[in-house]
Deep mutational scan, measured.
Amino acid sequence: TRVETATETAWISLVTALHLVLGLSAVLGLLLLRKQFPAHYRRLRHALW
């Protein structure tokens, strides 16, 4: 049972790390898009919101 708990903890930390990386890359991508293609960014924002 101890090994299972350790594996679960590892999976949870892995998933958390993946979510963090995905969130950060999404934010960075949006910032880059905003900087380089303001028109595209505006259109995207209108489409999303």
Rank of each mutant, 00 (worst) to 15 (best):
T1C: 10
T1N: 07
T1P: 01
T1D: 06
T1R: 10
R2H: 14
R2L: 15
R2Q: 14
R2F: 14
R2A: 13
V3F: 05
V3W: 05
V3M: 03
V3K: 07
E4W: 10
E4M: 12
E4I: 13
E4N: 12
E4Y: 13
E4G: 08
E4L: 12
E4T: 15
T5L: 04
T5S: 06
T5H: 07
T5Q: 06
T5I: 05
T5P: 03
A6N: 06
A6D: 02
A6C: 10
A6V: 08
A6S: 15
A6F: 03
T7L: 12
T7P: 15
T7G: 07
T7R: 10
E8D: 11
E8L: 04
E8C: 00
E8T: 02
E8R: 06
T9R: 11
T9A: 15
T9E: 11
T9P: 14
T9C: 08
T9M: 14
T9Q: 10
A10D: 03
A10R: 04
A10W: 09
A10T: 06
A10F: 07
A10K: 01
A10Y: 09
W11K: 00
W11S: 00
W11F: 12
W11R: 01
W11D: 08
W11E: 05
W11T: 00
I12S: 06
I12P: 00
I12Y: 09
I12E: 06
S13Q: 10
S13T: 15
S13I: 15
S13K: 08
S13P: 03
L14W: 11
L14I: 04
L14D: 08
L14Y: 04
L14S: 01
L14V: 08
L14K: 04
L14T: 01
V15P: 02
V15L: 12
V15Y: 10
V15N: 04
V15A: 02
V15E: 03
V15C: 06
V15K: 04
V15G: 02
V15I: 13
T16V: 13
T16C: 09
T16A: 13
T16R: 03
A17K: 03
A17V: 10
A17W: 08
A17F: 07
A17R: 08
A17L: 10
A17N: 00
A17S: 07
L18H: 00
L18D: 01
L18Q: 03
L18S: 00
L18K: 01
L18Y: 02
L18W: 04
L18C: 09
H19N: 13
H19W: 14
H19C: 15
H19S: 15
H19D: 02
H19Y: 15
L20Q: 02
L20W: 00
L20F: 13
L20N: 03
L20P: 07
L20A: 12
L20Y: 01
L20H: 06
L20R: 04
V21R: 04
V21L: 15
V21E: 01
V21M: 14
V21C: 15
L22Y: 05
L22T: 15
L22M: 12
L22I: 15
G23S: 10
G23E: 03
G23V: 15
G23Q: 01
G23R: 07
L24W: 12
L24C: 07
L24G: 02
L24R: 03
L24K: 06
S25N: 12
S25T: 13
S25W: 00
S25F: 05
S25I: 02
S25M: 06
A26V: 14
A26Y: 04
A26P: 00
A26R: 08
A26M: 11
A26S: 08
A26G: 12
A26N: 04
V27M: 11
V27W: 08
V27N: 04
V27F: 12
V27S: 04
V27L: 11
V27I: 14
V27Q: 05
V27H: 05
V27G: 06
L28G: 01
L28A: 05
L28F: 05
L28S: 03
L28W: 01
L28N: 04
G29R: 07
G29C: 13
G29T: 15
G29F: 15
G29A: 15
G29K: 01
G29M: 14
G29N: 01
L30F: 14
L30R: 02
L30P: 08
L30E: 06
L30M: 12
L31Q: 01
L31C: 15
L31P: 04
L31F: 06
L31A: 12
L31M: 12
L31R: 05
L31G: 05
L31K: 00
L32D: 09
L32S: 00
L32N: 01
L32K: 07
L32H: 08
L32W: 11
L32G: 06
L32V: 04
L33Y: 10
L33T: 03
L33Q: 03
L33G: 08
L33I: 12
L33R: 05
L33N: 03
L33S: 03
L33P: 05
R34T: 11
R34V: 13
R34W: 05
R34Q: 05
R34G: 09
R34N: 01
R34F: 06
K35I: 09
K35A: 14
K35V: 10
K35T: 06
K35G: 01
Q36W: 05
Q36V: 06
Q36Y: 04
Q36T: 15
Q36E: 11
Q36R: 03
Q36M: 10
F37I: 03
F37H: 01
F37A: 01
F37Y: 13
F37V: 05
P38Y: 00
P38H: 09
P38E: 07
P38I: 02
P38T: 06
P38K: 03
A39H: 15
A39K: 10
A39D: 15
A39M: 11
H40A: 11
H40D: 06
H40P: 12
H40L: 06
H40I: 02
Y41K: 04
Y41P: 08
Y41L: 08
Y41V: 13
Y41N: 04
Y41G: 03
Y41R: 01
Y41M: 10
Y41W: 15
Y41H: 10
R42C: 09
R42N: 13
R42H: 13
R42V: 09
R42G: 12
R43N: 11
R43Q: 10
R43I: 10
R43Y: 11
R43C: 10
L44G: 02
L44E: 02
L44A: 10
L44Y: 09
L44K: 02
L44R: 05
R45K: 12
R45F: 08
R45A: 08
R45N: 02
R45P: 07
R45Q: 10
R45S: 07
R45C: 08
R45M: 10
H46E: 08
H46S: 12
H46T: 04
A47T: 12
A47K: 12
A47Y: 12
A47D: 01
A47M: 14
L48C: 14
L48I: 15
L48A: 08
L48E: 05
L48N: 01
L48Q: 02
W49R: 08
W49S: 03
W49I: 02
W49N: 07
W49V: 01
W49D: 00
